[in-house]
Design a protein around this nucleic acid. Structure first.
Length: 719
DNA sequence: TTATGCGGAATTTTT
DNA sequence: TTCCGCATAA
């Protein structure tokens, strides 16, 4: 057998991992060290060399994108399609199990999946129906609580209430929320995992069956697993199966949503025979970039030492730019990209990454005024758009009339005179009689003696029934087409002014097209319709279109994970922004910010810019923040601090920073001192803070009110 | 039922 | 600043 294509491109540790025996294996893969490569080649090796049928392999990822990419790369490697390979996201695979064994899992065969938006709506309604004010009962908090419990594998009755009133209350809400979901056969994301876990836990025979099926289980981004995911993996790994995990604790940036790096240690405890392989050779970035990344990440405690290296070039220094404000920062970046283009490079090779989405605004404005095309990652995806969700809600209600979430969503959309009073009655009736909203509505309408009170409701009921009848035998795309017309959603959006309504209608048309091309090998117990609806919920679709154009890439540091670009700008490098204010005080969260910084830096292949602004307008307020502490963690021999072009009163403060011993700096002002500003006029100094060139004063100006000014710019005339 | 205005909050995000 | 939810008015 010729194993060259599988092994040729691998280095020694990679090869060890790929060809390892059937034993538990943990691959600690630094950024850019060929993590995906190891995983795909391992699978190819198992199939091609070890003669394991794809059907006996289970590969789990976190995102659909990763799953797709992996399948693609395996097929490329083996030159054959591997359709029966179990590969998918945790949720996708859990979903598959649940459809196959809905009965054993205690679910209806045609259960529907709700996304976090639907979930939040249900919770909000629950709070309202209980007459609770959401000051003390923040729906988002309750949602977070419920998901957290589920992620920990806990049902409402399994939580220790610690005799804490608030906790008891939360648990009760959890239970009530769950009752609503069960009533309508609705399954949220966390529930997919929890139900699957319980399914296997409570059905040993079934589990046995899968134990003998899955000879090898492989997990990507292992550091991102939460408790229920890890528990599920453990459960699915039988005595004769082996778990192969790839991850990097330094790239764990999702602790805040339940991911636990601790699973890396837990893995070794649970599988004492575990082999560990560390991949440190990096194939992405220049040596300088890696040195900077290493320097930063070593500042984290409790970390297994690991150091990225390359046999490639030293590369350029990391460029640091101190901008006057966020506009200056944006312009600087746009100009650099412009230069980059002039050197014959592509815009799409340049990425601007930032800590929080709000930062994109100033960048966008600068890009627009420079007429430079750009693309923002993240944001609403296709199936998350409200008009799409409306259309799908019709589809769902027509096919699953007890789906309360969908009922609520569209009962009065477009408005058909069903107001709050009528709905309250329906909700009350539903609650009292343990009925779905649909059934309650039917019941009330039927038993309305006068026949007028529930007139509107009757209309709605006949509309849905008519939809059901008329579209019964149609294919999904025709069905959707009819539904959006019958529902008069189209008319609703036509009335919406501006471009917005037009886009919505286009999106609805796009939905019909999407349904037309929808096709799965539907081997599980699902109707085509349910398969489509599940697809819509689990794969929220592509992000914005326009990828075909050569555009600059904008994204948060989180969404940059896994990507790489020749030219990278990390902007907003200011303490408070990055690391984020909320994560500065606690060492755990600060370390996660630092890992995020490590992730950001390691996105860069050749050129890396770190930029910060002395002054930044945030939430309509001017802020001054010191440069990010992370920049100080990069050794100065790796940094090239770019000076600003002199603009009169303006000078290079970075240069000064180095010279001025910060601790010695004394402010040349006194509280209460009078001052005069060229633009703002006369005022009185109220306060001062900071040191050296970052020292700033608060001045109460007679004409323009109180402002904070950085002394080194303000050119204050002191009296 | 819809329009308007106020107050409060405003990381990060996949499924 | 901008977005949201809520209350109030039209």
């Amino acid at each position: 057998m010729d194993v060259t294509p599988i092994l040729d491109s691998l280095n020694e540790p990679q090869r060890k991992a790929v060809t390892g025996p059937a034993e538990p294996m943990l691959v600690i893969a630094g950024a850019g060290s060929g993590k995906t490569r190891v995983l795909t080649h391992r699978i190819a090796w198992l199939i091609d060399v070890e003669n394991i049928s794809p059907h006996n392999l289970l590969a789990v990822t976190f995102t659909n994108k990763a799953a797709k990419e992996m399948r693609h790369r395996i097929e490329e490697l083996l030159n054959i399609p591997v359709n029966n390979l179990w590969i998918g996201t945790f949720h996708g695979i859990a979903h598959r199990f649940l459809r196959r064994h809905a009965k054993e899992a205690g679910l209806e065969q045609s259960f529907q999946i709700i996304d976090s938006d639907d979930q939040l709506r249900i919770i909000k309604r629950l709070i309202k129906s209980l007459g609770l004010d959401d000051d003390r009962h923040n729906p988002k908090e309750i949602q977070y609580f419920i998901n957290k419990q589920k992620d920990e594998g806990l049902r409402a009755d399994q939580i220790d209430n610690k005799n804490d009133v608030d906790l008891i209350h939360m648990i009760k809400l959890y239970q009530q929320y769950q009752d609503i979901c069960n009533q309508g056969s609705l399954v949220d994301f966390a529930e997919l995992l929890l139900s699957t876990y319980e399914l296997f836990r409570d059905n040993p025979q079934l589990l046995e069956k899968y134990h003998s099926t899955f000879k090898h289980l492989l997990v990507d981004e292992f550091q991102d697993t939460n408790s229920i995911q890890y528990a599920l993996l453990r459960l699915l790994t039988g005595v004769k199966s082996t778990l192969f995990a790839v991850g990097d604790e330094d790239q764990s940036i999702y602790r805040w949503r339940g991911a636990k790096v601790e699973h890396i240690a837990q893995f070794q405890k649970d599988f004492p025979a575990t082999k560990i392989i560390t991949l440190e050779q990096n194939y992405r970035s220049t040596a300088n970039i890696l040195k900077a990344a290493n320097a930063i990440i070593t500042k984290n405690e409790d970390r297994i030492p690991k150091e990225l290296w390359t046999d490639g070039e030293q590369g350029e220094l990391i460029k640091i730019y101190a901008a006057f404000n966020e506009r200056d920062e944006a312009n600087f970046i746009v100009n650099r990209i412009s230069d980059w283009e002039k050197q014959g490079n592509k815009r799409t090779e340049a990425a601007i990454i930032y800590r929080s989405n709000a930062q994109s605004r100033a960048l966008e404005e600068a890009l627009i005024s420079a007429s430079m095309p750009y693309r923002i990652y993240g944001g609403l995806r296709f199936f998350e758009r409200s008009e799409i969700k409306d259309a799908l809600a019709y589809l769902r209600l027509v096919s699953h009339k007890n789906d309360d979430a969908s009922f609520e969503r569209i009962v009065n959309k477009p408005t058909r005179g069903i107001g709050a009073k009528a709905l309250d009655n329906i909700r009350k009736c539903a609650k009292d009689n343990n009925l779905s909203l649909w059934k309650a509505a039917c019941f009330l309408a039927k038993n309305d003696p006068t026949g007028t009170k529930y007139n509107k409701i009757n209309h709605f009921i006949s509309l849905i029934n008519r939809m059901d009848r008329e579209t019964e035998s149609l294919e999904i795309h025709d069905k959707i087409d009819h539904l959006i017309n019958l529902s008069e959603l189209i008319d609703l959006y036509q009335k919406e002014k501006g471009e917005r309504g037009l886009t919505r209608i286009e999106n609805l048309e796009e939905l019909v097209t999407a349904a037309k091309s929808f096709d799965v090998d539907n081997e599980d117990e699902m109707t085509m319709l349910d398969a489509f609806l599940a697809h819509a919920a689990l794969e929220s679709g592509e992000e914005q279109a326009g990828a075909w154009e050569d555009c600059v890439q904008l994204m948060t540091m989180h969404s940059a994970k896994g990507l790489e670009f020749p030219l990278v700008f990390m902007c907003g490098m200011e303490d408070g922004l990055f690391p984020h204010q909320r994560n500065i005080l606690d060492s755990k969260t600060l370390q996660e910010e630092r890992r995020l910084c490590y992730v950001g830096i390691t996105r860069a292949e050749q050129t890396l810019y770190l930029t910060f602004a002395e002054q930044r307008r945030l939430h309509g307020q001017d802020n001054h923040a010191p440069p990010s502490r992370f920049m100080a963690e990069i050794p100065s021999e790796l940094k090239d601090e770019i000076r600003q072009k002199a603009t009169g009163h303006y000078q290079s403060h970075i240069h000064q920073t180095k010279k001025t011993p910060a601790s010695e700096a004394k402010l040349p002002v006194q509280l209460g001192q009078r001052a005069h500003h060229k633009k703002f006029g006369p005022g009185i100094i109220l306060a001062y803070e900071g040191q050296g060139v970052h020292a700033r004063v608060q001045v109460n100006f007679e004409n323009v009110g109180t402002k904070w000014l950085v002394l080194s710019y303000a050119n204050l005339e002191l009296k």
